[in-house]
């Protein structure tokens, strides 16, 4: 475990805390894409298949349970909680996210490091995570005003993968880890998709003005 990965995991955890804070305190999920949340549940389910078969550390197992539990909890809140589900921007969350799942499955079947169930599903989860934010970004562009917590959530979610890329550079240099195309490219694509958002988020933060994405 290196500092970049720890910072990355903490940033990821913080993004989920911010989202839960927003949903629980404001009792609203306005501006949050249910589709992105559902994609994240699939990402965690297919990535953490080895949860009960492989033990790396207490930290690793605990964090997997937290990520699985919170992502499923958030989808439950947005789908079934009597108050929260009314605030879901249903007719704006229109991204065809099933295509993202299909594309990721096809790509994982074509490009993977080993053709076994765990590896292919793990690869699938990397490809899917890279594009999982798209429905959320599209929804943000449609939202007239983006509330602070939603902006902070997306920023932290994007920042965590950028930190993971630094972690891979560190592991490559210091732990003479081999270069791994699949996580690297997926992570770079994922972070690149946030570039536009990062620009407007930082600009709004510097100018002390409301976050607004160009339509």
């Amino acid at each position: 475990m290196n500092l970049f990965r720890l910072l990355g995991d903490m940033t990821h955890l913080l993004s989920i805390v911010v989202l839960l804070l927003k949903i629980r305190t404001v009792k609203s999920c306005a501006g949050i894409s249910l589709k992105t949340q559902e994609l994240y549940v699939i990402v965690f389910l297919t990535r953490y298949l080895d949860l009960f078969t492989k033990y790396y550390s207490v930290y690793n197992t605990a964090m997997k349970l937290v990520f699985l539990g919170t992502s499923i909890g958030i989808v439950w809140y947005m789908r079934y909680h009597k108050v929260v589900k009314q605030t879901y921007s249903k007719d704006e969350d229109t991204f065809k996210h099933y295509f993202l799942i299909l594309l990721s499955i096809i790509l994982a079947l074509l490009i993977h490091r080993a053709f076994d169930v765990i590896e292919v599903l793990w690869t699938f989860s990397l490809y899917l995570e890279a594009v999982a934010i798209l429905p959320q970004l599209v929804l943000l562009q449609k939202s007239r005003n983006i509330d602070t917590l939603t902006g902070d959530y997306v920023f932290l979610l994007g920042a965590y993968r950028a930190l993971y890329i630094l972690n891979w550079v560190y592991r490559f240099l210091m732990e003479n880890h081999k270069f791994r195309w699949i996580p690297w490219i997926s992570g770079l694509v994922q972070t690149a998709l946030y570039a536009d958002f990062f620009y407007y988020y930082i600009k709004s933060w510097k100018n002390r003005e409301k976050l607004k994405l160009p339509a």
Partner: peptide
Amino acid sequence: PPKGSFHDEL
């Protein structure tokens, strides 16, 4: 895990 894999990550 094999050296090359990142399965020990989240």
